[in-house]
């Protein structure tokens, strides 16, 4: 029987969504053109050549190494691209992907990347053409709601702040805006430099839709223990207790 990895326990909607994000089995909701994603990332002009830090691997003549023979390099590594990043800020008000789950998604599903989770933001570093591909996947999928999530290379404040009146996550650099037609537009790149043209990111999710797709446990949404008042906690909390107990025991008694 083929092995099916088990990613996250629990039968709550949040548990199910966490499993989806970790397994990479995520729904595609929109299609933002690649050139627009590149423009928002701001590392190179759309259509420009990729800058490189070393010659393509084929020209370099690699040493005779069994690991290198086993592992095929990613497209960016093979071409010698620079390492670049994309950084996301996801609102704690039911954004679909909270920082840890972008990292789990990256670490499990994206080759040659270095995800990092901070308190209110999440960064993935990879070779330039790889990170562009991974960023587009994140933008297009249900991991991103264009009102509650945004790419912020600096001045990332927003994750734990209240939302604005129009339901957008607060951004002091005003990188995205809500258009009169109800669509969200990116007007600046991820470090706050104005774009040549506004990029239409599409309509944001409704509050109910965001709550359905979120990966954050919240008391006013889906709590970690599952249904309030249930006789038994959800498996997610049991697993966390179990891990906590064994980690403490292992920490104190390493034998």
């Amino acid at each position: 029987m083929a092995y099916t990895p088990q990613f996250y326990p629990g039968s709550t909607s949040v548990g199910i969504n966490r499993r989806k994000h970790m397994s990479g089995n995520i729904e595609k909701l929109r299609d933002i053109p690649e050139a627009d994603v590149v423009a928002i990332m701001g590392h190179r002009a759309p259509g420009a050549d990729y800058a490189s830090t070393h010659p393509p691997l084929k020209e370099m003549g690699e040493p005779d190494c069994p690991v290198r023979q086993l592992v095929a390099p990613t497209a960016g590594a093979a071409a010698g691209d620079r390492v670049r990043y994309s950084q996301w800020t996801d609102s704690m008000y039911f954004a679909p992907s909270i920082p840890y789950f972008r990292s789990y998604w990256g670490a499990i599903n994206c080759r040659g990347c270095d995800p990092g989770t901070l308190s209110g933001r999440q960064i993935i570093e990879a070779r330039e053409r790889d990170i562009e591909k991974y960023t587009k996947q994140q933008y297009d999928s249900e991991m991103t709601d264009v009102a509650l999530c945004s790419m912020r290379g600096c001045t990332v404040h927003g994750h734990s702040l209240r939302l604005e009146e129009n339901g957008m996550q607060f951004d002091m650099l005003a990188r995205t805006e809500m258009g009169k037609d109800g669509n969200v537009y990116a007007v600046k790149d991820q470090v706050g430099i104005p774009l040549d043209k506004k990029i239409n990111l599409g309509k944001p999710m409704t509050e109910a839709e965001a709550k359905k797709r979120t990966t954050i446990f919240r008391f006013d949404g889906v709590p970690m223990g599952g249904k309030i008042g249930a006789r038994k906690f959800d498996e997610a909390i049991e697993m966390t207790h179990h891990m906590w107990e064994y980690r403490s025991k292992w920490g104190y008694r390493p034998e």
Binding site: G153, C154, L161, F170, M172, L173, A174, V191, G192
Partner: peptide, 21 residues
């Protein structure tokens, strides 16, 4: 409430005016 800077305070875009604010 949170400050609304008149220009980008950090990063590569430092000093770029923020017209919205």
């Amino acid at each position: 409430g949170p400050n609304l800077p008149r220009s980008v305070p950090y990063g590569p875009g430092r000093g770029t005016p923020i017209e919205e604010n």
